[in-house]
Design a binder for these strands. Structure first.
Lengths: 131, 131
DNA sequence: CGTCTTGCTTACGTTCGCGTCAACTTGGGG
DNA sequence: CCCCAAGTTGACGCGAACGTAAGCAAGACG
């Protein structure tokens, strides 16, 4: 590898996001790339955060929720109250995800049933005669 | 129960949606309440669909995706091509959900780890002396 | 009769997560 | 030196999924 640092373009190609998106996340304080002069440079920490951001999005969390969660993944505050608050945020998200997990399991079973029933209907449906 | 039919208000109270939302879903052709004069009346079919809509939303599907999926749950078209197309839509959604399921499982494990690590940090952090 | 409630339609406003565009700077090549 | 490409900021735009507000109709009630 050339270096541990990536340009915005390399980031975009690697993670399939646009420059606009990366700058947007930065404006929302989700990532903090360094600056070499004007240009942004993303290190491993930034990349790890980005991966978590993209994952969080897939689960339907807002950027704000994700921002709060990210604090868990990086020991930011050092005082008890702050750590405790972060843990609580994490617990809430965890509960959300566990609920989603259970519900998803049901929905998948459901959908499978519907699909196989539809397949039965398909088998039972005569082909169109050409005319 | 009074009847099998519910007014818009009863629907809203039961499913925690607003009238605006129900009319919006109708405009997008996701539900088709009958009309008694001007008023909408929702039967069990409508309610079943609404439940599926709300569930789909929780998984991050768009209303359009949900609309297509709903066809699976109600044998609409009777010709092979249409049934087959509906099945394919269902398969795609199913694949989405299965991926989401797997990823969610990982993310939950991950988050649990982070939370317990944060708890360790909390235990290791001395209490603030009052001053 | 008036008025209250419930619901209807139409239309415009709002939030989130970016896209798009304009205008500027900066660094490297020819 | 000039130009181009890449990057930056700032402002405005947009689609999805509703919220909100205005104005009207129609039945219930005293």
């Amino acid at each position: 590898m050339s270096d541990d640092l990536m340009t915005i373009r390399q980031m975009c190609d690697t993670y399939e996001v646009t420059p606009r998106t990366l700058r947007f996340y930065e404006a929302r304080e989700l990532i903090f790339p360094q600056r070499r002069g004007q240009h942004r440079l993303y290190d491993r920490r930034d990349r790890a955060r980005l991966i978590l951001i993209l994952r969080g999005k897939r689960f339907g969390f807002s950027l704000e929720q994700i921002r709060q969660l990210l604090e868990l993944y990086e020991p930011g505050g050092t005082n008890r109250a702050q750590i405790a608050a972060t843990i609580n945020v994490g617990r809430d998200r965890l509960a959300d995800m566990e609920r989603q997990y259970a519900e998803l399991s049901e929905a998948i079973a459901d959908l499978r049933t519907q699909i196989s029933e539809a397949q039965s209907r398909l088998s039972a449906t005569p082909e169109q005669p050409r005319g």
